[in-house]
Design a protein around this nucleic acid. Structure first.
Ligand code: FES
Ligand code: FES
Lengths: 132, 132
DNA sequence: TTAAATACGATAAAAATAGTCGTATTTATT
DNA sequence: AATAAATACGACTATTTTTATCGTATTTAA
C-alpha cells in the first residue's frame, strides 16, 4: 500500500548510480540495466523521460549515454515524483474531479489534510538525499 | 501514485458516517452503500474486516448493523492502514524480502529513510482526525 | 417461519502496471 | 561512405493488482 512504481524505483537506482560516478561521465542504459538486472528497454524509457524533464542529459550516438544535469539538491522528492508520475496525493478527487460521488462524499476535507501532509513531507526532502 | 485503495476509502467514508450519528446506534452496510453510492458487497466486506479488527462492532440479524467500537483517538492512521492493507511502505523490500535484486540494489538505505518518514507521519495522525 | 441482516470464500471483470517490439534517429569510429 | 552503438518513442502485449460480483451459510428480530 502506498507503493512506488517500478518506473520511479528504476529512476532512483539509475540516479544513484550516476551520482556515484565521476561528474560529467556518461552511463548508458545498458550498463545500468546489466549492473542491477533491470529490464533495459523500460529503464531506457524512464531515462528518456528524465532527460525530457531536464533532470539528466542524454547524449546520442555510440559511446553516448546519460549524465546528471540538474542540481539534485534543488529538486524535491515531490517534484521528482510528480514529474514521473503526475500529481501526488492519496486520492485523486482533487486533480481530476470526476469522482463519481463528489457531492455525496464526506471525506474530501480530511483527505485533503492528509494530502497536504504528504506533499509537505516530500517537498522537504531533496532528490539528493536519496541519491547520495 | 501513492494512492489509497477503494477499500480504505470506503472504510473512511463509513467510519465518518457512523461517527456522525448518535453513539451506539447501528448502521447497516446497505444504508451506507445507498447514501454514498458505493458497491454494497464490497463495502460490507470492508466493514466485516474492520469488525474482525475490533474497530467497529457487528450485530447480526434483521435490524442489525455496525457501530463504532474503539476509541478512534487511540488508533493511528498507520495502524488503521496496516490493518486493512498490510505493511505500509513505499517499497516492500523490507517486508517480503524476496526482491529479485537484493544485494545489487543501491537504494535500500535511502528508501528505508523515506519509509520511516511516512510511517512516522501516519503514526502521528489519529483515525479520529479523519472521521470527525 | 420468514425476512433482513452479517460472514465469507470463490470467482470474474476491469484497470493499472510492467515489459517488449519495431523502427527511426543520431553520431563516433573505421 | 559504411557500420555499429547508442538514444527516442509509439504501439502493443503480458502480468499483476484492484475492484466488484456471486453464491451460500449463519444469525436473529419480528
Ligand atoms: S470526492 Fe472522491 S472520494 Fe470523496
Ligand atoms: S529495490 Fe528491492 S532491494 Fe532495492
Amino acid at each position: 500500500m502506498l507503493k512506488l512504481t517500478r518506473k520511479v524505483e528504476y529512476a532512483l537506482i539509475a540516479l544513484r548510480h550516476m551520482q556515484a560516478m565521476k561528474p560529467g561521465k556518461l552511463t548508458s542504459a545498458k550498463e545500468i540495466a546489466e549492473a542491477y538486472g533491470l529490464p533495459q528497454q523500460l529503464l531506457a524509457k524512464t531515462l528518456q523521460q528524465m532527460a525530457r524533464d531536464r533532470i539528466i542529459e542524454a547524449v546520442q550516438g555510440p559511446s553516448g549515454g546519460y549524465r546528471i544535469l540538474s542540481n539534485l539538491d534543488k529538486i524535491s522528492l515531490k517534484d521528482f515524483f510528480e514529474k514521473l508520475e503526475g500529481p501526488l496525493g492519496i486520492m485523486d478527487c482533487y486533480f481530476d474531479s470526476d469522482c463519481v460521488q463528489i457531492g455525496a462524499c464526506n471525506i474530501r476535507v480530511p483527505i485533503q489534510r492528509i494530502n497536504e501532509n504528504m506533499r509537505n513531507m516530500f517537498s522537504k526532502m531533496s532528490l539528493r538525499e536519496v541519491t547520495q
